[in-house]
């Protein structure tokens, strides 16, 4: 039982990070029907920017750890949003009118570009957030000791998702995003500036991805320039499991995937961990071909 709870908490923490990344995929997909393959690299970029701010510039030393982390998260979100915007302008906007497959290849190209840019800037060797950045506090849940940081990561990812949910469902800009996702043409006729909506989506998604990067760094320490590849892939899988284009679906998919992965690694096999993830994906899609919470898409006849 204690083992189970520990694994569950681990799974929830990773799941929260997956969910944050998955939101970026799903929001872009919802509006543009484009898989933003470079999104995983924006997650990596966030982790590296966070490292530079917190450790290299010694932000943690000057203003204290707590405020430093908050400032760092804010700045990283801002910078990631900027990077996302530039990415959209450079690699996706010129391709708006062409086929979907060419956009996929452009996205792959952008992903290769970003990954190597990160490698050239920060070096091919991985970096490590200092282990003593935050005090190692253990709290007890159901009588079991679990690291506080994991719980904090999970809870803060939930809070961010709650905020996003509010933004999407309760504000004007959220309504514009939803409208553009359902029918771009009709949204334009209603006076919505779809181009601007796309630009905004390409800032919110990367901001969340960058935030996930910082959270990952603080929680797990080790960061490498290639990590965006596998985390991006997992998060994208999570978005698909949830039903791509659907925001609550991405949250659910991310958390579910994290838990499946942690429990699978613990109870089935550690070395088959990633394979279990993809088996789960195939199983879920065989049963529900458009994910758990699919967007209602009418088949065009």
């Amino acid at each position: 039982m204690e083992f189970f709870i520990q694994q569950l908490i681990n799974g929830l923490a990773v799941g929260g990070i997956y969910a944050l990344i998955a939101l970026g995929y799903t929001m872009v997909y919802g509006v543009l029907k484009l898989i933003n393959f470079a999104h995983g690299e924006l997650f990596t970029l966030g982790a590296y920017l966070g490292f530079t701010l917190l450790v290299s510039w010694g932000l943690a030393g000057t203003v204290g750890v707590g405020p430093a982390i908050l400032i760092c998260m804010g700045l990283v979100m801002l910078l990631s949003a900027l990077a996302g915007h530039v990415l959209e302008r450079a690699a996706y906007r010129p391709l708006r009118k062409s086929g979907r497959l060419s956009a996929v290849v452009s996205a792959l190209g952008a992903s290769i570009f970003l990954q190597n840019a990160i490698m050239l800037i920060w070096g091919a060797k991985g970096l490590a957030y200092p282990a003593d950045l935050l005090p190692r506090v253990m709290i007890s849940i159901a009588g079991q000791p679990v690291p506080l940081i994991r719980v904090v990561v999970f809870v803060s990812s939930l809070l961010v998702m709650l905020g996003l949910y509010f933004l999407i469902n309760r504000t004007r800009i959220g309504m514009a995003i939803r409208a553009s996702a359902i029918d771009q043409g009709a949204a334009k006729l209603m006076g919505i500036d779809v181009r601007q909506v796309i630009a905004i989506v390409f800032m919110i998604g990367p901001a969340l991805g960058g935030l996930a990067g910082v959270m990952f760094g603080i929680c797990y320490g080790q960061i490498t320039f290639t990590m965006g590849q596998i985390y991006g892939l997992k998060a994208f899988t999570a978005a698909i499991i949830g039903g791509i284009g659907n925001i609550p679906g991405a949250m659910l998919g991310g958390i579910l995937l994290g838990v499946i992965e942690a429990l699978g690694a613990a109870y089935i096999s550690m070395s088959w961990k990633d394979a279990i993830t993809f088996f789960a994906l195939i199983l879920i899609l065989v049963i529900r071909p458009t994910g758990i919470l699919p967007e209602r898409v009418a088949e065009k006849l």
Binding site: L95, L114, M119
Partner: peptide
């Protein structure tokens, strides 16, 4: 080491000009 950087950029450019 910057070879792949150019490769990635080239892919994006090629897709923009020959989608």
């Amino acid at each position: 080491s910057s070879r792949l950087l150019f490769f990635g950029a080239a892919l994006v450019l090629m897709m923009i000009f020959r989608p």
